[in-house]
């Protein structure tokens, strides 16, 4: 009996020792773009990690044990929302036993609540594929949305960590200044892309196309989330022959096979776009991501 008590005491002491002193706010971002944005706004006041990488499809993530452990210790989850993470995030929240990050708590931040989503379906039916009832969740590919989310996220950081509220507000102002200047630069460079017809693999590039004024009417997937068969690509090819496109775009985490197949038969180049921060060497932060996006699109236009 005594030895059991001693053992329990020792175990508790060990666990306490293993828990690092509360220094920085622990933030778990669902996607790399939100990790990058949180880093911009929080600087050294938060230790930020991303649950997914640029090589992963944010729709298809497994609720791995390592992610449950990270959710257990997080003070704040920064996610897209709009059902993008519906297949895995609820499990992390439930299994973590962490009350701070549950839906409805300040520790759960959904970017989609602070922007207006495009592609809202009039009705939702599974026969339409993996559609999101709330609208298109790939909202970080419009830089104006990044600015909106940054304001809301800075306010949320200040709410959770009120001791450093001034720090987050100051960093947000600095970020907003730099972001507005960069947006002006990208928009000036992107004028050449206005009205350019493009084909995309999935609807995850629609915000980008919207912002730049490109015409993204052709999608390679027959239904969202369903990979195109060769027969279906044949139909796309027929459509593209009637209404030619200038380039065929796919995100870095998607298989390039369908885009290349179509590129070979139409002569329009297949372009892999960095979908998020970390997708290429240059896209090391949000500024680098947009620099690279504009560069690759302009490069394909030539």
């Amino acid at each position: 009996m005594k030895s059991i008590r001693l053992f329990l005491l020792a175990a508790c002491a060990l666990l306490l020792a293993a828990t690092p002193a509360r220094a920085a706010l622990k933030v778990l971002a669902c996607e790399p773009e939100w990790a990058a944005l949180t880093q911009e706004l929080a600087g050294d006041k938060a230790s930020v990690s991303s649950a997914t990488s640029a090589k992963q499809d944010p729709h298809r993530i497994e609720a791995r044990p390592s992610l449950i452990a990270r959710a257990r210790n997080a003070d704040l989850l920064v996610c897209t929302g709009a059902e993008l993470e519906v297949g895995w995030l609820p499990l992390l929240q439930r299994e973590s036993g962490n009350a701070r990050i549950q839906a409805g708590q300040p520790g759960y931040f959904e970017a989609a609540r602070f922007v207006s989503l495009i592609d809202k379906p009039r009705s939702v039916d599974r026969s339409m594929g993996d559609v999101h009832a709330a609208g298109n969740p790939h909202l970080h590919l419009d830089p104006r949305n990044i600015a909106r989310v940054a304001d809301a996220l800075a306010a949320r950081l200040a709410q959770i960590d009120s001791a450093n509220a001034g720090h987050y507000a100051a960093r947000n102002r600095d970020f907003q200044n730099r972001w507005q200047q960069a947006m002006a630069r990208w928009q000036a460079a992107g004028v050449a892309l206005r009205g350019v017809p493009v084909a995309t693999h999935h609807k995850n590039l629609n915000y980008l196309a919207n912002w730049l004024g490109m015409k993204a009417d052709v999608t390679l997937e027959p239904k969202p989330g369903v990979d195109p068969s060769v027969a279906y690509l044949g139909e796309v090819l027929a459509k593209v022959r009637e209404q030619p496109v200038k380039m065929i775009l796919h995100a870095s985490y998607e298989s390039p096979r369908a885009s290349r197949w179509l590129a070979q038969r139409t002569g329009a180049p297949a372009v892999e776009l960095p979908y998020t921060v970390g997708a290429s060497a240059a896209a090391k932060d949000l500024f680098g991501l947009y620099d690279e996006l504009i560069d690759r699109l302009l490069g394909a236009l030539k």
């Binding site: 909106r148 200040a158 001034g166």
Partner: peptide
């Protein structure tokens, strides 16, 4: 700093309101 914080907080709420108004308009 205080003003900045207030500004950030209000801007966030206004952005939220704007987006809600927009989505309400859209629907």
């Amino acid at each position: 700093d205080e003003i900045r914080q207030m500004k950030a907080a209000y801007e966030a709420r206004i952005a939220d309101l704007e987006s809600r108004v927009k989505s309400a308009e859209a629907s």
